[in-house]
Design a protein around this nucleic acid. Structure first.
Lengths: 212, 212
DNA sequence: CACGACATCACCAATTATGGTGATGATTTT
DNA sequence: AAAATCATCACCATAATTGGTGATGTCGTG
């Protein structure tokens, strides 16, 4: 009895890459390949795979939402989140939604194969980095209510720098205008990205503009 | 009679760099060094230098504005704009404001020295790149009224990509969502930056959000 | 048909941005 | 006094962005 697998991934290249990997393993069988949340919710329940490999950023919604919905219908199906970033918030949301594993897209094919096997054995596949983040987070004893909320508070300096980001200034300009080193600006940027849970200048600016 | 020079530049390192270069030329004399528009407008008229080396991005305003103001008071003083970008719009505005030269910050010290000398001889120091842009612009017979205006029209594809930029998607994501190569996205980005007259993703998004 | 506009892709160089780690001093809080 | 927070700086590696050039095929229009 082979392990049946479904893929939810909008990037054709990545989906194909996984499909190739799966096709080379004799007891793996790819039975469904969806490009968005809508198709996933309509096709996967009927397919009832053993494992779903789920992207988070889909064109029409979040893979986390899709995970929650699918787990209601298929409680025995294991969902492995497959994403590019190690966003702590995403990890928790995905785990809460019922995902059993969390893998980075840059993982090797061997890692992907072993993760699927581990999943079926009841283990939780996770990169060392993600495991560390999860442990760190539990150490901090963060109440669940605080996690997804309005995000951590920025310090005055961080707000100052974020405002300059929102004027389009590059890092050098910011350093110059505040007479601090580029390294310091970068340190602040890292804190800002962390607190806003984003991964780029543009995302930070957008989040800032949203919340005025 | 040495050539007296004033510097308006907020970046301490760059200002020092120019100061060093000037100090090594026997008939150059640095008589004033300002960090912002306010100081420049209050100190330079009294100093009445032969040449002003003017940055565009100052903490409290534009060097182009400062140029216009100073040229009213000191019509015989030559202003050389000193900036990092070869923004065509800036070039014209600066020339309209009365600047006589335009140099990139990455110019060599020899280039800077010869530019100052040329300025005093009535020539217009300009990098080949900038000269080319100016000539191109005149070739296009762009009426002055059109230049600073709403910017060139974006193609449908460019608008599409700009909208994704404004959602914070990185280049890879955009390529993936439209099933085109990252190179193509970059080509579109270059066109968008050109047409919007900006130099970064964040600036493009801001300009887009401004004009809805 | 020739021409221009558009979308696509490729290759390349240089600069910037992202992310991690660690460290210091000042200030505030406990 | 000890702990926590903040702002600062440094060094590093990798990834992403920026900017330039050139090339191809398609499409519509004159």
């Amino acid at each position: 009895m082979p392990i049946s697998i479904a893929i939810v991934e909008d990037d054709a290249d990545i989906a194909e890459g996984i499909a190739d990997i799966i096709s080379e393993v004799s007891d793996f069988k790819l039975i469904c390949c969806c490009r968005n949340v809508r198709t996933a919710l309509s096709e996967i329940p009927a397919a009832a795979p053993d494992v779903i490999i789920m992207d988070i950023n889909l064109p029409d919604g979040s893979g986390i939402y899709a995970t929650a919905k699918l787990k209601q219908l298929l409680p025995h199906t294991e969902v492995m989140i497959f994403t590019v970033y190690e966003n702590t918030e995403d990890i928790f949301q995905a785990l809460e939604a019922g995902a059993s594993g969390y893998l980075l897209k840059r993982s090797s094919s061997a890692k992907i194969i072993s993760s699927i096997r581990n999943l079926m054995k009841g283990e939780v596949p996770m990169t060392a980095e993600i495991a560390r983040k999860v442990i760190q987070s539990f150490k901090k004893q963060q109440p669940a209510a605080q996690r997804g909320a309005a995000s951590d508070k920025l310090t005055p300096r961080e707000v100052d720098i974020l405002q300059m980001l929102a004027k389009g200034y590059p890092t050098k300009e910011i350093a110059s205008r505040r007479s601090i080193s580029v390294d310091t600006v970068n340190t602040h940027l890292k804190s800002i990205y962390d607190k806003l849970r984003v991964h780029s200048r543009t995302e930070a600016v957008l989040k800032f503009l949203e919340n005025n």
